[in-house]
Nucleic acid binder design. Structure first.
Length: 830
DNA sequence: GTTAAGGCCATACC
DNA sequence: ACCGGTATGGCCTTAAC
């Protein structure tokens, strides 16, 4: 039979010693289909140089005889071919050694210890990745598949009989369909659980909400026994007898909706493992899989929950890697993320233990639970274009792309594109190699220019477009193009200090596959950005974003010790170029007669004095003409004013801290306390006001008046406590803290009061007046709900004044004296 | 007991 | 371990007096 098909969920199984890919997807009518397919399995043996034909024939014969009997599975070499390939951009002769089972390739590799063989590669990709590369059945692309329909067939041990799909097909032919011809509407089911404890399985699950297209449900067994059920019943609410029945009902609904995607928020680390743990306690099988199997959890750094045939998505992970760096939200909590992307307003509900929930609060709790699933559902819809485009770009199953970090994005893109360079993949570094890479230590980073504190007018700012990436492309830098010694015409890095020696690295003129691939990414990034500007919609934006992220992560990937194509030398060279190009631009700008104010990594800002914008742009053009390759400097913007301050208590200009106002009055604040979430709202707001007023007026007069007014309020204890809350994140488990900081104390108080808390929680507290004689801040910590007066001294001298004093210092004003008054007379003002 | 230096810790910039 | 280095600054801990 023949059908159209979009692959969504990839899995594989062994049958009679061979690997079979098992791919679940849909056809154009929305029917769920399972495809079963196989592909050649092989390992590359790269031969040493100068091995002659006779030697090759000799070892080929030996290799062909390799047979292994492992754990009851017999495996053997089926075929050996000689190929002309490339490895790390160098021409090599390599044997392609076919075997029966991908998992046995490691053992076959260990049998290939012939002296003629230099390296063994290409057996650590994982079967699914290998399969996608071999058969080009890429996730979320459309295909026409023809094959044999398996209908209650005995083949593959009757796999189709236990699988909840419409058809099961043994693939014979795969044909690519024109992209975007058929619209695929993903079937989504969002879920969220509420529990009494945050530790997995420790407390009971109180309720579960489920949201799909035209489907809303909250299942619960908890309510106050004295309350009248009629008042509590809603159209979405369904009562069950106990927690066991709750879990069974959940399974029932998942099966009934039968989604492509079961979507949660932090569900890898919480909801799914929690459900499994509670199901285990009740001896219930959490049979969510299409084959009725339970979710499988794998432990990387973080827990990951996989359901057979249904793609479990933890949206938090995807947002964290693909979006967090471009977001404004202070935390990645569902509420804040929803606020930023959906404009949804918070549903207020303070989580507490079920025993402390009052009668009338239950209905609110149910609604809160439902709302979380609604938000998760809407966020999935919102991010679907991004999930789609990232998956199509990286060519890994969406289950994986949605969980990958930046290095994996880059690496997957490379692995799926090696074939066009005829490259054999490099291996993953082992423990030993990672250790060695760490041992070498980090390389010197970018250059940051020390600004002179002050208020400046008429500022222009230039920055390099994708600086690191354009350096890699323009200077052909990579692990594979690094030369052992200087060659004629090679690219030469600036001088680098390594172990007290000054050295240079050289890179081949011969284009390497990595810089070449990056050039492709770089150009696609430009193309999709233009495409988006011409035709703005979620898909073009997502495509543009995918390539933006990919392009921006290239250098980080090379410098990451876990990367296949890691290179200390390449990373050091890239950064040496980064420093050099930035410093060169700064020098040239000074020479041109401009006053340089600041520069950080890839940017320079300067006052244009009396020169016109036109002259500045002419200068920019001149600078660009002197840049090599694809390197490009662009005008970030012209600014009306900008403010730079000293470091706290010092005289040096503070780096990475500035504020500018553009000609439309739009203000850009970097590094100041205003943008730091670990300062209280009051400090941030005062500072933000002061900065804005100064930038608008060009002087400090109004700002000073405002500050006096607020400080008066502060002294009269008229400030709302909410504005004095300090927030700080618990970055590791409480037990691992060496120093007992205020936020650690606050966290301990929360535990005492049974307020849910875990690693990653944003801890809130305020500093209160206490009887203690202790000078330690931590001894005055109180939780927001705790009764108490705020301590004036702390907020004045450690929050408000520090945030503004070096700003007023720019105008020669000592704000402490002005407020507290060395001259006591000024105190009378308050 | 006080103080300064150093370390831990969180957060931001690019 | 899950992209990197550079930088500010609060607060605690420790060593020295």
């Amino acid at each position: 039979m023949q059908t159209k098909f979009i692959p969504i969920n990839y899995d594989y199984f062994d049958y009679k010693g061979r690997n079979y890919a098992k791919i679940i997807g849909r056809n154009e009518k929305g029917k769920r289909i399972c495809m079963i397919d196989s592909c050649p399995v092989y390992i590359w043996a790269i031969l040493k140089e100068n091995i002659n034909q006779k030697q090759i024939e000799k070892i080929t014969k030996k290799i062909e005889k390799i047979k292994l009997d492992l754990k009851g599975r017999q495996t053997k070499v089926e075929k050996v071919e000689l190929h002309d390939k490339k490895f790390l951009s160098k021409k090599v002769k390599a044997l392609k050694i076919y075997a029966t089972n991908y998992k046995d390739l490691h053992d076959i590799a260990s049998k290939l210890d012939f002296k003629e063989i230099e390296k063994r590669r290409g057996y650590d990709l994982g079967f699914t990745t290998h399969y996608i590369i071999e058969k080009k059945l890429k996730p979320l692309h459309w295909y026409t598949i023809s094959g044999e329909l398996l209908n209650n067939s005995e083949e593959f041990g009757g796999i189709d009989m236990n699988l909840d799909v419409d058809f099961c097909i043994k693939v014979e032919k795969i044909k690519t369909l024109e992209p975007d011809k058929i619209k695929y509407q993903p079937k989504i089911l969002a879920y969220d659980i509420e529990t009494d404890e945050l530790q997995i399985g420790k407390g009971e699950i109180l309720m579960i909400s489920l949201v799909s297209d035209n489907f809303k449900k909250v299942i619960t067994w908890k309510r106050n026994p004295t309350s009248d059920i009629r008042h509590l019943t809603s159209d979405f609410l369904e009562y069950v007898k106990d927690e066991a029945e709750l879990i069974e009902k959940f399974i029932e609904y998942v099966k009934k909706v039968s989604p492509d995607f079961l979507v949660g928020y932090f569900s890898d680390g919480f909801d799914l493992p929690y459900l499994k743990a509670r199901a285990d306690i009740h001896k219930i099988k959490l049979s969510l899989g299409l084959d009725n199997t339970q979710p499988k959890f794998s432990r990387g750094v973080q827990l990951t929950g996989k359901i057979n045939g249904i793609t479990h998505i933890d949206l938090l992970k995807f947002i964290r890697t693909a979006y967090a760096q471009y977001m404004k939200s202070e935390t990645l909590s569902l509420n804040e993320v929803a606020k930023e992307f959906l404009g949804d307003n918070k549903k207020e509900f303070k989580l507490k233990h079920s025993s402390k929930i009052k009668e009338h609060e239950w209905q609110k709790y149910y609604e809160y639970n439902l709302h979380d699933s609604i938000l998760t559902y809407k966020l999935f819809e919102k991010f679907w274009p991004d999930l789609l485009e990232f998956t199509k770009t990286i060519e890994e199953p969406i289950f994986d792309t949605s969980r990958y970090g930046l290095s994996k994005y880059t690496e997957s893109y490379i692995l799926h594109n090696l074939e066009k360079f005829n490259e054999i993949p490099e291996k993953r570094p082992g423990h030993k190699e990672i250790g060695e890479r760490k041992e070498i230590g980090s390389v010197k980073g970018a250059f940051v220019y020390e600004p002179t504190p002050g208020l400046y007018e008429n500022i222009a700012m230039f920055d390099f477009t994708s600086m690191h990436t354009s350096i890699i492309i323009s200077m052909n830098i990579s692990k594979s193009t690094l030369l052992e010694k200087k060659e004629k015409g090679a690219y030469e890095s600036p001088e680098i200090k390594e172990k007290n020696k000054k050295i240079k690295y050289y890179f081949s003129k011969e284009p390497g596959f990595f810089p070449n691939l990056l050039k492709e990414i770089f150009e696609k990034r430009k193309k999709f950005k233009t495409e988006y500007k011409k035709n703005p919609n979620p898909i073009t934006l997502a495509r543009s974003n995918a390539f933006k992220v990919l392009s921006a992560s290239a250098h980080g990937y090379i410098a990451f010790f876990g990367a296949r194509y890691y290179s200390h030398e390449a990373s050091a060279s890239i950064l040496a170029f980064v420093r050099k190009f930035n410093q060169d631009i700064i020098e040239k700008t000074k020479k041109q007669g401009y006053k340089v104010i600041f520069g950080d990594t890839d940017s320079v800002a300067f006052t244009r004095e009396k020169k016109s914008k036109k002259e500045v742009l002419k200068f920019l053009k001149k600078l660009n003409n002197e840049l090599p390759g694809v390197m490009h400097l662009e005008l970030e913007d012209f600014f009306k004013r900008g403010l730079w301050v000293t470091t706290r208590g010092g005289t040096a200009g503070a780096k990475k801290k500035y504020a500018m106002i553009d000609e439309e009055g739009k203000i850009k604040i970097r590094g100041f306390e205003t943008v730091r979430r670990d300062w209280c709202k009051l400090s941030r707001e005062i500072q933000s006001y002061v900065i804005k007023q100064i930038l608008k007026d060009g002087n400090e007069k109004k700002a000073l008046e405002y500050v006096k007014k607020i400080i008066k309020k502060l002294k009269q204890k008229e400030i709302n406590k909410q504005d004095l809350i300090i927030k700080s994140q618990l970055k590791k488990p409480l037990s691992e803290y060496i120093a007992t900081t205020p936020h650690v104390i606050a966290a301990k108080k929360m535990i005492e009061q049974k307020i849910p808390l875990s690693q990653g929680t944003l801890i809130e507290y305020y500093i209160a007046e206490t009887k203690t004689k202790s000078k330690l801040v931590r001894d005055k910590v109180k939780l927001p709900e705790e009764k108490g007066e705020y301590e004036l001294d702390y907020y004045l001298n450690r929050q408000i004044l520090p945030a503004i004093e070096n700003i007023f210092q720019v105008f020669g004003i000592n704000i402490k004296e002005t407020i507290e008054g060395k001259k006591q007379t000024t105190l009378g003002d308050f």
